[in-house]
């Protein structure tokens, strides 16, 4: 028992009639009340996070379809759903797309985010105001961003192609050509993710003591040199957190792709989460959908472990 706990219980027993010391230890009213503070949240987490994870595992081993909702029967089929997933001709394309979408988004968000964070670190009039206004794309509902970008990227009359047209560039079929749709979706997702990267990286930059730069300047480390030898090494823990968290958030993106392309054209923007959604809620093959989402969970889990390690390092340093 810690010092504070001792004093708290002492204060409590001063107020109430002191019950026998032993019984008070575990099941006193005080301790029960303490547990009641966390009970609703614990129950909620179990029901709305724990149960779905378990249910997805069992579902993925069952033939779980629309019929199940009428008859209540979901026969066990072993790994048949996983076989269906692995042998489906959309599996490898969606794996590749998930990887390209994630890597492309993260690279773009991070590089632009870091550049902007470094820029805003120089204090100038309005810098704080401008930086906080930059958060807007992140706060908008994703489906709103999708709708807006769809109008901007429209092939015939969208403003982007009109703008490119003034340089003599032919209209690009951003969302209707399988060759460029994934690139367009990545570009939009970069735009959505920049504010988050700026915010976290800016926070990290603020924590680097000015003395380091002053000492570096004496040794001739300014500008790019200072960035390479002072900023980057000191920012490393924050960078790893941003990157891993970025992967975990990007890998499950659904809204943006559904809003922009619905997984099309010609399945060019199918990702694991789109597959999972479409198998479950378009084809009503919940077993197959669950198998897809379990693969998604597995990948997220790997990065979650990396995140926790990176985060621990960030806290330690």
């Amino acid at each position: 028992m810690t010092q504070t706990e001792l004093t708290t219980t002492a204060a409590a027993s001063a107020a109430e009639a002191p019950p026998p010391v032993r019984a008070r230890r575990r099941f006193s009213r005080e301790n029960v009340t303490r547990l009641l503070f966390v009970a609703p949240a614990a129950l909620y987490l179990v029901l709305f996070f724990g149960y779905p994870v378990v249910k997805n595992i069992t579902m993925s081993l069952q033939d779980y379809t629309t019929k199940t909702f009428f008859t209540g029967e979901a026969p066990w089929v072993g790994f048949a759903n996983y076989q269906a997933v692995l042998s489906s001709n959309l599996f490898w394309p969606s794996m590749t797309n998930t990887a390209l979408f994630t890597i492309g988004s993260i690279a773009g968000q991070f590089i632009i985010g870091l550049a902007l964070a470094c820029f805003f670190k120089r204090r100038f009039p309005l810098s704080n105001f401008l930086r906080s206004m930059l958060l807007l794309p992140w706060l908008l509902p994703l489906i709103v961003s999708s709708a807006t970008w769809r109008s901007i990227l429209e092939q015939d009359s969208g403003i982007l192609n009109q703008f490119l047209g003034t340089f003599g560039i032919e209209p690009v079929p951003w969302l209707t050509s399988p060759a460029v749709a994934l690139i367009a979706v990545v570009l939009v997702n970069i735009w959505v993710g920049i504010p988050f990267n700026v915010t976290i990286l800016y926070g990290g930059l603020q924590d680097i003591p000015d003395e380091l730069y002053e000492a570096g300047a004496l040794d001739g480390a300014t500008g790019w040199k200072a960035f390479r030898h002072i900023t980057l090494p000191n920012l490393k823990p924050v960078i790893s957190v941003v990157l891993v968290l970025g992967v975990v958030y990007t890998i499950k993106v659904l809204d943006i792709i559904l809003g922009l392309t619905n997984g099309g054209p010609a399945n060019a923007t199918q990702t694991l989460s789109i597959r999972s959604y479409q198998e479950s809620f378009i084809n009503f093959e919940f077993g197959v959908g669950a198998a897809f989402s379990n693969i998604l969970i597995l990948i997220s889990l790997v990065f979650a472990v990396i995140y926790l390690r990176a985060n621990r390092r960030a806290v330690d340093e």
Partner: peptide
């Protein structure tokens, strides 16, 4: 341990939750 569980719960893809909740 509780904090770890909360962190991990934030990482669970929404489609996983939706799959299970639809049936429930």
């Amino acid at each position: 341990i509780a904090l770890l569980a909360i962190l991990i719960s934030q990482m669970i893809p929404g489609i996983v939750i939706a799959n299970a909740l639809y049936a429930a």
